[in-house]
């Protein structure tokens, strides 16, 4: 058997720098989960189809099963654990909870990141735009309807309010419905 090949990876995850020696065979999603211990990123297929492994790489959403861990070297990564700030949920998280935008929750991290990238480029998407933005994500539980609603609610909340509130898309109060 061939000797193992180890690659040094320095990467920033959720704002914290990490260095690790990783098996060159590892996928980014495997490293995130098993080397860096962030289990919130899920594996549903390892073929790039389900989107459960979605994270942000250098500011753009990516399926972390389509990337080698080695390719994370020098890159900045955000995972679902990095969405909340100082314990406060991001508006997208809050909206997914409020609107029951998940059932088993397995697809949830990917859904939230697809929603986030959409709202960054199109703050007031219509239903078709929301559905299109979820193209890379599968959900088997919800039929997507409450996910779409959650994204729409998040859009309302993020584009409403004062400038100051908009600056920070996190909140600690649970909005009443």
């Amino acid at each position: 058997m061939e000797t193992k090949s180890i690659v040094a990876v320095r990467t920033t995850i959720n704002g914290r720098e990490h260095s690790a020696e990783v098996d060159s065979r590892l996928l980014l999603v495997e490293a995130i989960r098993d080397v860096f211990g962030l289990k919130g990123t899920h594996i549903g297929c390892l073929t790039g189809d389900c989107g459960a492994c979605t994270v942000v790489v250098d500011g753009k959403i990516a399926k972390s099963c389509l990337m080698l861990a080695a390719s994370a070297d020098g890159r900045e990564i955000q995972t679902v654990e990095g969405l909340a700030r100082d314990g406060k949920l991001h508006q997208i998280q809050q909206s997914f909870w409020d609107e029951y935008g998940f059932q088993c929750g397995y697809c949830l991290p990917g859904m939230m990141f697809s929603a986030k990238e959409l709202l960054e480029t199109d703050p007031r998407p219509d239903e078709a735009a929301i559905r299109h933005a979820l193209q890379g994500n599968l959900c088997r539980c919800t039929g997507y309807q409450k996910i779409v609603q959650a994204v729409s609610t998040a859009a309302d909340r993020m584009s409403g309010g004062t400038n100051e509130e908009r600056e920070d898309d996190h909140r600690d109060d649970t909005p009443t419905r």
């Binding site: 790489v57 389509l66 990238e117």
Partner: peptide
């Protein structure tokens, strides 16, 4: 191209 923005981005 399908697969979502996650695929088109890379």
């Amino acid at each position: 191209i399908t697969g979502g923005a996650q695929v088109r981005n890379f």
